[in-house]
Design a protein around this nucleic acid. Structure first.
Lengths: 211, 211, 211, 211
DNA sequence: AATGAATGAGAATTCATTCAT
DNA sequence: TATGAATGAATTCTCATTCAT
C-alpha cells in the first residue's frame, strides 16, 4: 500500500538522519533511537544494515568526505593558473560545505576531541585536500603572485567563513536583538551565492600580491 | 587549619574542570563523575553548588564568554583609528580563543544544535561583540580605508583561522603522514604569537583598501 | 519455544508487582529496582514499556480504579429499590477494597498530597462512583426510606470501615498487647465475609428510616 | 533585629512543618530539605535539635497522638451513660482529627506499611483508645442500649467519615466536574461543626438499639 | 530484511547525614 | 545554637546493543 517508489531506501534514510543528528549533537550526543525515529526505521534495522553507532558515524563521515574531496579535486584539475586554482578551491570547498552544512561542525568536533572516532581513511582525504592547497599556494608564491602563508590557515579561514552561513545566519534569524540589528542591516544580501563570492573576494585579497 | 590560601574554592575547581572537560568532549560526552573527580570534589557537591549538568554547562559558557567579550572590548577602547581597532579586534579575539581553546568548539556545538543550551545573556554578549566589529568596519568604510564587507563573515573568518591552532596543530602532530609532510614543511614557524600575526596580516590585507 | 501459555506478559507482571509494592510502601517508598525484581524483568523494561516511576504509578492507579468502578456499577445496575442498591453499593465497594487492599492507602495518599499524581481519568471514575451513590441516596430519600445525608460522608464511612480489615487486623495481630486483648476477644469473628456483612448492617442502620 | 517574640521556636516550626509534610507525602516521600525550608531553619538545625528523619517522624507522631488520646480520654471521663460516652468519643475524636488533619493519613499509611516507623509508645496510645471504645460499647450492650458490634469497625468508620472533611472537601473543590455537581448540591452545608454532628448522628443511629 | 521486546552497563540526580566553623 | 558546605550511598533513568520471531 505504501508508496515505496518515491521513498528512499532505508539505508539512505538512515544515512541522512544520522548525518543530520551527528552534526546537531555530536557523536556522544546522538541517540540511536533518535536516528531510527527520524529515519523512520526500526532501531534494530540500523544494526542490521550498518552495525552500530560507531560504524554508522564512520560511514557517514567517510561518505560525505569522499564526495567533498573528489569534487574539489576534479574541479581544480581543470584550472591552470594558481590564481584560478585557488579561486576554484575556495568556491568548490564552499559549495561543498554549503551543501553539507553539518560537515564543518562534525569536523570541528573531531578536531577538538582528539579524533577519537575518525576512521583512518578520512585523514588521508583531508591530507590530500591540504596537499592540494599547499601545491596551489606554493605555485602562486613561486610565480610571485601570492604572498607566503600557511595553507592550513587559509583552509581554516575558508571553512570558518563558510560556517557563518550555517551558524551565523540562524543566529541572526533567531536573535534579532537590537544589538544585532545593525550587523544585519549593514550586510544583508547574503544569499549563499553572494556569500561564496564574498568569501572568494576576501581570501583572494588576502593572498594575492598587489602589483 | 587547612591551607586555604593555595586551594581554590570548590566552585572554582568545578568550574575549571568543567570548562576543560566540556571542551574536550562536548556536552554529551562529558561525565559529571569525571568533572567531579578532576575538580576533586564529591559529585553531589556539583549539584549542591550549581544544580546539574545542563546548568553547569550554561554557567561555564557564560563565564568564559563574559571574559572574552570584556577583554576584547577593553582593548579596543584604547584605540583610535579603525585600522588600529580592527587589528586589536583580530588580535584580542585571537588571544582569547588561544587561551580558551575550548571556546570555538563549544560555540560550534551551539551553533549546530540551535543554541538549546545557551542562556540569554550569552546572546547579548555575542551581539555586543558583533556590534563592535560592525562599528569598526563601518567607520573604516566611511573613511575610505576599508572595503565593504560583512562583519559576521570577517568575524567567522578570524575564528576559523584561529581554530587552526587548536585543531590543525594537533592534527598535524598526530597524522604526520606523507601527504601532510609538505604542508608542514612549507609552514612551520607557527608558534601562537606568529600565528596571530599571520591572521592579522591576512585579514587586514583582505579588508584594507589599497591606496 | 518458551512456555508462553502459563507466563504472563512482562507488562502484566510489571503491573502486578507495581500495584503490590506501591500499596506496601507508597509511591516514594517504592523502588523501581524492587518492582523490576519482583516482576522478574530488567529494570529498563519498565522504562521501555511504561516510561518511568510516575507514569507507572498513574498507570496502576488508573487500572485498579477502572476495575473497581466498573465492578460496582455493574452490580448496582441489577438492583431495583434504593435499599437494595445501597446494600449492593456497600457490598461491592467493600468487596473491591478487600480484593485490592492497596487501594484505600493509595487513595489516601493522593487525598493527602493534593492528587498530584492522579491522571484526570481517575477523577472521572471517582466522580461517577459518587454520582451513583448520590442518586441512590436521593431516590431513597424521596421514597421516604432514607434520611437525608451526605453521599461523600457515607462513602468515606464505608471506606474507613473497610480499611479496618487491612489495617486493624494486622494491627491486632502484631500488637496483641494486654490493652488490646479485650477488643479482640469481644469481636473476633471478623473473617472478611462477616466483616462486610457488619459494615452493611451498620451503614444501613445509619441511613434507613425506622418505620 | 528580628522579631523573635512573635516567632515560634525553631523546634516548634520544625515540628509543624514536619507534621504537615509527613502527612502530605508520607515518611519516605518527605525530604529533610523541604522540612527545613518550610520550617525556615537550616537543615543541619534539624539534626542538631532532633537527630534525624526517623527520630523526627516518631517525635511528631508521638506528640500529636498523646494530645489526641489524652483529650479524648479526659472528655469521656466526665460522662456517665454509655450513649453519652459514645457521643463524646465520636465528637472528640472527630474534633482532634479535624484539628490534626494530617493524622489520619499518617496513620493510614502506617497501618498499610507494617508500622515500620512507629515507636512502641504509639501502639500503647492507640491500644488505650480502642480499649476505651471497647468499654463503652460493651457497657452499652450490657445495658441493652447498643447492638453488638466491633469496636475497631466503629473506630475506623468514624475516622473514615472524618477523612471526608480533609480529602473529600478538597476533592470537591478541585474537581467540580459535572458529575460531582450533584453530590455537592445535595449536600453542601458541611461546615466542620455540622460535619461532626452528621457523623455523630450516623454512627449513633448505627449503634443504638431502637426501642 | 525488519522489528518489538528485552537488557546490562552506565550516567544523572537525589537525599539523609556529617562536619568545620 | 546554628549553618553552609560537603559527601556516600542509593535511586531513577538512559542508551547501545542483542535476540527471538
Amino acid at each position: 500500500m505504501e508508496d515505496t517508489h518515491t521513498e528512499q531506501s532505508a539505508l539512505q534514510r538512515i544515512s541522512d538522519a544520522a548525518a543530520q543528528i551527528f552534526a546537531e549533537v555530536g557523536f556522544a550526543g546522538a541517540r540511536v533511537d533518535e536516528i531510527a525515529k527520524r529515519a523512520n526505521v526500526n532501531k534494530a534495522t540500523i544494526y542490521y544494515h550498518i552495525g552500530g553507532k560507531e560504524t554508522l558515524y564512520a560511514y557517514i563521515l567517510q561518505q560525505v568526505f569522499e564526495n567533498l574531496v573528489t569534487g574539489v579535486a576534479e574541479r581544480i584539475a581543470e584550472c591552470h593558473t594558481p590564481e584560478e586554482k585557488l579561486k576554484v578551491y575556495i568556491r568548490s570547498l564552499s559549495v561543498e560545505i554549503q551543501s553539507n552544512p553539518h560537515l564543518p561542525v562534525l569536523m570541528m568536533r573531531e578536531f577538538a576531541s582528539d579524533y577519537q572516532h575518525l576512521p583512518e581513511t578520512i585523514f588521508e582525504e583531508i591530507g590530500y585536500l591540504i596537499e592540494l592547497l599547499t601545491g596551489i599556494l606554493k605555485e602562486g608564491e613561486q610565480q610571485n603572485a601570492f604572498i607566503h602563508c600557511s595553507p592550513l590557515l587559509i583552509h581554516f579561514m575558508i571553512i570558518g567563513a563558510n560556517i557563518f552561513s550555517t551558524a551565523g545566519r540562524s543566529f541572526l534569524e533567531k536573535h534579532n536583538t537590537a544589538s544585532l540589528a545593525n550587523a544585519q542591516t549593514v550586510y544583508r544580501k547574503g544569499v549563499p551565492q553572494d556569500l561564496i563570492e564574498d568569501i572568494e573576494t576576501l581570501v583572494m585579497r588576502a593572498v594575492k600580491k598587489v602589483t
